[in-house]
Design a protein around this nucleic acid. Structure first.
Lengths: 267, 267
DNA sequence: GTCATTGTATCGCTGACCGATACTTGTTAT
DNA sequence: ATAACAAGTATCGGTCAGCGATACAATGAC
């Protein structure tokens, strides 16, 4: 009865695994993943749990303060308590601690939206955002995810990963186009990543969101491994890809360089 | 066997309450509340659960990806997954959706750190932050809590609450001084709140953090109930309390006014 | 109105989880 | 070095928390 590896990669069995904990988190995820309040049956469908189980879990999560039920619609949403957990992460994450100051500097220097993010699974996820001009609000939030293969931040990070890991990332999920301009050709993405490795940054043209240009540079630890990326996104209304490469890329690279740990000498 | 209310306000019993869910969240809270990675025994102490239970819970939370164990120190910390939950909250919260644009405007207009927060329990908690100059990083994070009675944001919100609720807030916890300048006199705080009600804003002088001046204005819904506050914090190195009241307060009030829902006519 | 759908309440059975405890590893003191 | 201690890990049998089924109630769609 040893460690039966299961389809989804989470190792159950093993004696110490508490199923209710997993169910709890899955329900929270289902609620959080929805852009709007979500009903009982929808949660059941999203998680695959029975209605009874979901009923108990949401009830409890509500009474401990993490979910909130709109009495009129009977739909659930996350509460501000989620920010307590997020705060716990932000406070202990070295990238935030060491990077935020430089990020603020960069933001003031270039006067545009500057962000920081890291790789989580196959996604690039924003961990710090300093929006400059009015912009799409939903797009400006911490915790937003973008597929690594098409986000400039994701590609920048990949540029410091060994080829093998990059390929694994690209194979891990279908390469779908988010906009008509998204590059979905595996070989072409590998070329872009390679170019990013040579240039030290990666600029993209509306591959995630129409009207948005983005440029990123990777942040590395003392071993040269990427731990995140500095990213800046601007509107096509006031920028061209060329201007981004010339004006913004150096700023982003400089910020990333300052945040990166100096590389240890090989011994 | 109806709804035995328990000491901490959380209603257990009641058939639908799942104890493991509560335990799960308590463990996450214990980890998140720590400013640094935390060990098994410390979690057990913080939560009051047995070591075995904590062992199982942390094990499971780790394997589903919300906690991370440093293999060297065997201590746990939150992972970036916490941001997924936070993102779920931010996306559905109307205050964020309607407020962030105005907040960005205000930030550009006054060139100083501008924040938004809401009341949660007896704390003022930041839900959006736009840091301007280099500043204390830990102080600049989303999810940071401050006691409502001494934070300018908390007082601004209280200024729109009925007297009775304000008093309840002040009685709910001991009024401790966070700095030598913190007002801890209950009567004096009530006066300050009253003054905020008359002026439409509340400015404080280093009552939470030495070197930090803050000014806030409340955001209200269509019934005139406060739902949050716009706040700006600046350094004593470049500002005086007077300058804050004259220059910054109007900006903050304007932003709060724009975010607030127009008050419905009484019928 | 009727019907379909979603949310709520109840209940008895059972295996997942609990707590105790023994073991291992790492750290501190002498 | 070695002991003494603390922190973390592994194991196990008994039992009651929580599971699923199902019946009931409330919405709202038509």
């Amino acid at each position: 009865m040893a460690a039966e590896p299961t389809a989804d990669g989470v190792e159950r069995g093993e004696g110490l695994f508490v199923a209710s904990v997993e169910r709890t988190m899955r329900v929270l995820e289902a609620v959080a993943a929805n852009q709007a309040p979500i009903g009982l049956t929808e949660i059941a469908a999203a998680t695959g749990f029975g209605k009874s189980a979901v009923q108990r879990l949401t009830h409890t999560l509500t009474s401990v303060g993490y979910l909130e039920k709109d009495p009129a619609t009977r739909r659930y949403r996350m509460t501000v308590r989620a920010l307590d957990l997020a705060h716990g992460f932000l406070v202990t994450d070295p990238l935030i601690n060491e990077g935020l100051l430089h990020l603020i500097d960069a933001s003031e220097r270039c006067g545009e939206t500057v962000n920081m993010g890291k790789l989580e699974g196959t996604d690039f996820i924003y961990v710090a955002r300093l929006p400059a001009h009015r912009m799409n609000v939903a797009a400006a939030l911490i915790g937003r995810r973008q597929p690594a293969y098409c986000a400039s931040g994701g590609r920048a990070i990949m540029s410091l990963l060994p080829r093998q890991e990059v390929e694994a990332l690209l194979d891990a999920r279908p390469l779908r186009a988010l906009t008509p301009l998204t590059t979905t050709d595996r070989g072409r993405i590998l070329e872009i990543v390679e170019q990013a490795r040579l240039e030290g940054f990666c600029a993209t043209n509306q591959e995630v969101l129409l009207g948005e240009l983005a440029v990123s540079a990777p942040i590395s630890d003392q071993f040269g491994r990427p731990v995140g990326a500095v990213q800046s996104s601007v509107s096509t209304a006031s920028w061209t890809l060329e201007a981004v490469r010339e004006k913004l890329a150096p700023q982003v690279m400089e910020a990333a360089r300052l945040i990166s740990r100096p590389r240890l000498a090989k011994r």
